[in-house]
Design a protein around this nucleic acid. Structure first.
Lengths: 152, 152
DNA sequence: ATGCTCTTGCCACTACTTTGCAATAGAACC
DNA sequence: GGTTCTATTGCAAAGTAGTGGCAAGAGCAT
């Protein structure tokens, strides 16, 4: 785990504490994994998170992972992107949006500038992404090059 | 059902026939409901569709509704927008994208021009929305005015 | 009307998520 | 360090969404 990952986890823990929530092994574990995942695919499913924690020796229940993630999302520390039948979770500490391959679930980040026009158009029809710190964001669903070729 | 709704349903049935699929009561029923829904919220969940069909006297199984919708999506006749834990379905016959309230599920349409920059940005990172006729599109998740006020 | 085969109903099953309750473990305070 | 208060977790059970197999039934070309 790099210094920057540690810092991001610590910052998230501070926010938890400020919200009156305790610094538990389950929460730190989930945050560690999320911070670590940002290098790669960026987002993880609940199950991936769960298995990664077990593999690292963090004894935790699947239902607890669900509960922890729900809280992180409510606090705006994590955000979600629905992919297929499940939901993926990522740290929300820098403002970014997502492009997802609907076939394999692969995900890329999009900078805020790139989606500004979509956000503005949504606001114009009464859907606001930015107020309220509540979960929100732009998701572009498409197909990655590999899946395009595979499908012909 | 207005004339235009009938036309849209007929057009969809033609596409089904061309794909070698039969014109069955279940499929027509689902298409009718989808065409009808466009006036209002625009998209329906599988359950809403199912109940609406039963209410209209179309005897159909829930699993059949799932199967029909999957086919419609594969053929590009319908498209999906994930909302919360489920998926909503709408007719895809005019190119539009979506802005969704993550709290109440209310949905608005966004014209293709409004999201063009997001689509381009996604393509730049290797996610293509337009090729392949496969399901895809831009979804802006946010909060509608009513839910923003309700949440404070 | 006949026959071929696509579709559906029925039902069991998987995957994902939520919830209630008792036991446990943070953290504030002494 | 020990005590106390209550948030948090484990456990187990149930709820919700979606899938798959197979035999009976329904389109449609002829």
């Amino acid at each position: 785990m790099t210094t920057s990952e540690t810092e991001r986890v610590n910052a998230a823990v501070q926010r938890l504490r400020r919200a009156g929530l305790r610094n538990t092994a389950a929460r730190r574990g989930v945050l560690d994994q999320l911070a670590h995942a940002v290098g790669g695919r960026g987002h993880l499913t609940v199950n991936e998170l769960y298995r990664a924690l077990l593999a690292r020796g963090v004894a935790v229940e699947l239902s607890t992972v669900h509960r922890v993630l729900r809280q992180l999302v409510e606090l705006g520390i994590a955000h979600t992107v629905p992919v297929g039948r499940t939901t993926t979770f990522g740290l929300a500490d820098d403002a970014h949006h997502h492009a997802v391959c609907g076939t394999c679930g692969d995900m890329r980040q999009l900078p805020a500038e790139a989606v500004a026009a979509s956000v503005a158009a949504a606001r114009a029809v009464g859907i606001d992404t930015e107020l309220s710190g509540q979960p929100g964001g732009v998701v572009v669903y498409g197909r990655c090059a590999r899946c395009l070729t595979a499908a012909g």
